[in-house]
């Protein structure tokens, strides 16, 4: 198992360097001179030249990338904001907790709603509940998060006046953004749990359990669910990674002070280092979450664990 963990961690390193390379190339190809953007239009040619030399911006592309990676690893430095002039990492670290909290709330809602719905759908296959659950799941998958967010604001904030339309400082304020963000995950978890359960309940060992005279509730909740949940756990983990990225649109609708909103504001102000830093940060977080999911999967599925004994 330790060999597997080490292999997965080693595999992550080139992937992260590759992501950093893509992100850095995108920033490099973006029109505009970073030196002029940081120093402003009033800066003299000499000052710009000096700044370019000091920051290594006059060096060849690959050397600049090497320097970027070195600074990112040793100092956590991924550039400076054109607007606030503060290090990008500081800006991101100040906003990341809100994004993490939002994604965590959303995944909790998705699991609490999606899992029972999927199980019930599978147990009562072709019933009214199953049909309705599948229709709602499909609608949830097709509904743009930014539209759902606006509809939730319209219903719960404008008409009913139950919940605030923006902010993220109180529990009440967290409900709408988390609900909006969780909709697609609820749908995916419901569909995955249902199909996984349906696959498992047709397996031979379930027939054996039934033929031994086990109670139906024990067959479903103990024998079937245990195996059906393995792919669902993986999906939940992967969804958490996607929620970190998906939070960009949700945060901008509900004015949640997270990385997503920081990125959207930076896009509007053409503050590219923050945009690229945000992309890199979320991509790294996403990769780390995926790694943890893979390890968790190997841990809970004895078949995978056995391969690496």
């Amino acid at each position: 198992m330790i060999r597997y963990i080490l292999r997965r961690i080693l595999f992550l390193i080139p992937v992260l360097i590759g992501v950093a390379f893509c992100v850095f190339t995108l920033l490099y190809l973006t029109p505009g001179d970073p030196a002029r953007m940081i120093l402003g239009d009033m800066a003299t040619e000499n000052a710009i030249k000096e700044f370019r030399a000091k920051e290594g911006l006059d060096k060849p592309f690959l050397l600049q990338f090497g320097n970027y990676i070195y600074k990112a690893i040793t100092q956590g430095d991924i550039g400076r904001s054109y607007i606030t002039k503060r290090p990008v990492m500081n800006e991101i670290m100040a906003t990341f907790p809100a994004t993490l909290k939002l994604a965590a709330f959303a995944i909790v809602i998705a699991v609490v709603v999606g899992l029972p719905c999927g199980i019930l759908s599978a147990i009562k296959q072709y019933s009214v509940f199953d049909t309705l659950a599948m229709i709602f799941a499909m609608i949830g998958l097709s509904m743009p998060v930014f539209w759902l967010g606006l509809l939730l604001i319209l219903l719960f904030s404008v008409h009913l006046r139950w919940l605030p339309p923006s902010g993220f400082d109180t529990f009440k304020a967290m409900i709408l953004p988390s609900l909006a963000l969780s909709a697609q995950s609820i749908s995916m978890i419901t569909r995955m749990t249902r199909s996984s359960m349906l696959e498992v309940v047709r397996a031979d060992y379930i027939r054996t359990a039934r033929s031994k005279g086990q109670k139906e509730s024990v067959v479903i909740w103990v024998h079937a669910l245990h195996n059906a949940l393995i792919p669902v756990v993986t999906l939940c983990g992967l969804q958490f990674g996607h929620l970190l990225a998906g939070a960009i649109l949700t945060e901008s609708i509900f004015a949640v002070p997270g990385v997503g909103r920081l990125m959207v504001e930076s896009i509007k102000m053409r503050d590219y280092p923050v945009v690229q830093g945000g992309v890199l940060f979320v991509a790294v977080a996403f990769s780390v979450v995926n790694l943890l999911v893979d390890l968790l999967y190997a841990y809970i599925d004895p078949r995978i664990k056995a391969q690496y004994r």
């Binding site: 992501v19 995108l26 990225a245 960009i248 990125m263 590219y272 945009v275 690229q276 991509a283 996403f286």
Partner: peptide, 13 residues
């Protein structure tokens, strides 16, 4: 390893 929406945002930006 970069979520699709995020990659699209990075390229579009």
């Amino acid at each position: 390893s970069v979520p699709q929406t995020l990659l699209a945002i990075a390229i579009a930006a």
